[in-house]
Amino acid sequence: MSVTPTSPDSIIPRLKAETLSTLVRKGVRADGRSLEDFRELKIITNYLPKADGSALVRLGDTQVLAGVKLELGSPYPDTPEEGVLVVSAEFVPTASPAFEPGPPDENAIELARVIDRVLREYGVIDTSKLVVVSGKKVWVVWADIYVLDHGGNLVDASAIATLAALLTTKIPKHTITENESVLVDKSSYAGPLPVVKKAVTVTIGKLGDSLIVDPTLEEEKVMDVKLIVGVGEDGSIAGLQKSGDGYLTFQEVEKAIELALKKGSELLSKITGSLSQLEVTSSRSAGAAPIEGRGSESSGGNA
């Protein structure tokens, strides 16, 4: 059952709320950004030694870790010649005083399902290339999102982290025996996960009459509503989700989408740029023992 949020953490002092909305009305933000700026973005790929693909994303104060694990499994009966993508999210209690241990709540479920829909419907992974034994065994791509620190705009940070993790995921080496059983050798890799297209989300917040990009946690507390827009690399709308107790007018919806598409293509080229830079550094540092050493950092800067 879904209940109107009553947690004291969702309450922000009225004075602060007024300051934030007054600022936004003037076209500036408390942290000095304009209404249409993303915060500084940092992506560290290959962050984890045990995952088949991983990325840590820092978007301002928000930190999200995405890990990808590949497992052999059965295809869905209605799509026997396709691999499977499963996206889940955990809002771990380290991330915010508002997060409690336990199964994912409606916010975590919504976040994971929105990102799942964007990646799936836009066809980010070519799932037809994930078949191991036709109709019987396929790769199941488990993309797990771990929110480590909640500084606002978890959806966009998680979408970037998931995309970056998928882009660095490698398929383990495997051999098929005569009786169609599959031997997997996780110590070496057969090749990269077939990521054929890129998509992210851009969340547009509505504060009073203003639309803002990449809201901070403080801004989210005073925001009326947000519109999460899936943006594909060809400029199409790859998913939508209105989230929050408020509303948008018909005209605000069109404005928000226009803004999101513009920011989304900027964001996508930032990600592509920073990840290709990284390939050079990550191959050089591969094999280094400490976790930090294995990772390769790249900064997307302010979008």
């Binding site: 419907e121 199409s236 709308i237 998913g239 939508l240 989700q241 209105k242 948008l248 007018t249 018909f250």
Partner: peptide, 10 residues
């Protein structure tokens, strides 16, 4: 007021 908006697809 648009109070619900979702899109599954492209």
């Amino acid at each position: 007021m648009v109070t619900l908006l979702q899109l599954n697809g492209v």
